[in-house]
Amino acid sequence: MTLIFAHRGYSHLFPENTMKAFKEAEYAGSDGIELDVQLTKDGEIVVIHDEKVDRTTNGKGFVKDFTFNELRKLDASYPKKTFLKKEPIPSLYEVLEWMKTNHIICNIELKNGIFPYEGMEEKVIALIRAYNMTDRVVLSSFNHYSIVNCYRMAPEIETAPLFSEGLYMPWIYAESIGAKSIHPKYTIAKTELIKASMEYGIAVRPYTVNKENTMHRLFSAGCSAFITDDPVKAIKIREQYC
């Protein structure tokens, strides 16, 4: 069965990368969630996508220039004006604590392409191990050096390179860097590529799949999983294939 991962949580309806969005994704029946991590000025792992807080909060500036306590005062529900309740930026600790109450799989994307956060991989891995979540987490990044670094430090945690452009025989590339899966942009995740990768033993989880016709194609191909903003739509379509 093709698994459904909620992109930054149930971000179609709820503020992205917040505990509210993650919990709503679980209630909706998602198999997994996808989130992004960065480091604060004082070295805390926080869940936020952009290097700046401007788009997703009522603050301004780079994540790396805020302390954890300063970041927590910002409102991450700010862009979704319909929300009356303030939503803070979560820490990865908070997400893993919540994961103890369910069976959700978590894809953690390391946002270290623009700012190479010193020691972030070590901190993320230490936290995953402390929570005994090594079999429920996938580490992904567009920074493939980081993915290799993670694999060397923690071969027991699944890694997945992210890529948005065509890669020749990506299953061979994945194997060469110790990755058990690939996360291609959906536009380059052709059906032949999906099938060839999976036959080779490499899982394929395209991102970010919101169009119904693409969802139908991926379910028909028996794709391992895909990442979507709207897990409810994906679950409804999946029912036709079960």
Rank of each mutant, 00 (worst) to 15 (best):
W171M: 05
V137M: 08
N132G: 15
L139G: 09
I125R: 01
N210V: 10
K123E: 07
A196P: 04
I104E: 05
L167T: 06
A126T: 06
Y168W: 10
E165P: 03
Y200K: 14
A196H: 09
Y145W: 14
T214R: 09
A160H: 03
V124R: 00
I89Q: 00
F142R: 08
T159G: 10
I125A: 03
G201N: 11
V95Q: 02
K190L: 14
N132Q: 13
M133Y: 10
K185E: 07
A76D: 03
I128E: 01
G201F: 10
K185L: 11
F115R: 05
M198L: 11
I105H: 04
Y207A: 08
P170C: 07
E212I: 11
K85W: 09
I202E: 01
P155A: 14
L127C: 04
V124E: 00
E97S: 11
L92P: 00
T208H: 12
S146R: 08
A196W: 03
Y117L: 07
E87T: 12
F163M: 11
A179M: 13
R152A: 14
M198R: 10
N149C: 03
G178K: 02
C150Y: 02
M198V: 10
H183A: 13
M153Y: 05
S91D: 01
A203P: 00
Y117D: 07
A179E: 09
P116Y: 06
K80P: 00
P161Q: 14
M99R: 08
E122I: 05
I108E: 00
C106F: 06
N107M: 09
I125M: 01
S181H: 06
Y93L: 11
E156S: 10
P184N: 14
N102T: 12
S140D: 05
A160N: 02
G201S: 13
E165L: 15
I188D: 07
I125Y: 01
Y168R: 08
P88V: 04
E175Q: 14
N213E: 15
W171K: 07
G119K: 05
P170A: 06
V124M: 02
Y168P: 02
S140K: 02
G166T: 10
Y173T: 12
T134V: 12
A189E: 12
Y78F: 15
P206I: 06
A174E: 08
A126W: 02
E122N: 13
V124H: 00
K195R: 14
Y117W: 13
L162G: 03
V137L: 08
P116W: 04
T191W: 03
I194L: 09
N210Q: 11
Y145T: 11
K80G: 00
K185W: 09
S197A: 15
P116I: 04
K111W: 13
A174M: 08
P184F: 12
A130M: 07
Y93E: 15
Y207K: 13
S141H: 08
I172S: 09
I89A: 01
K81S: 12
L110P: 01
K100I: 02
T159I: 14
C150G: 02
D135C: 11
L193E: 08
G201C: 09
E199T: 04
A130P: 00
H216P: 06
K185I: 04
H103R: 13
E118F: 14
L96H: 06
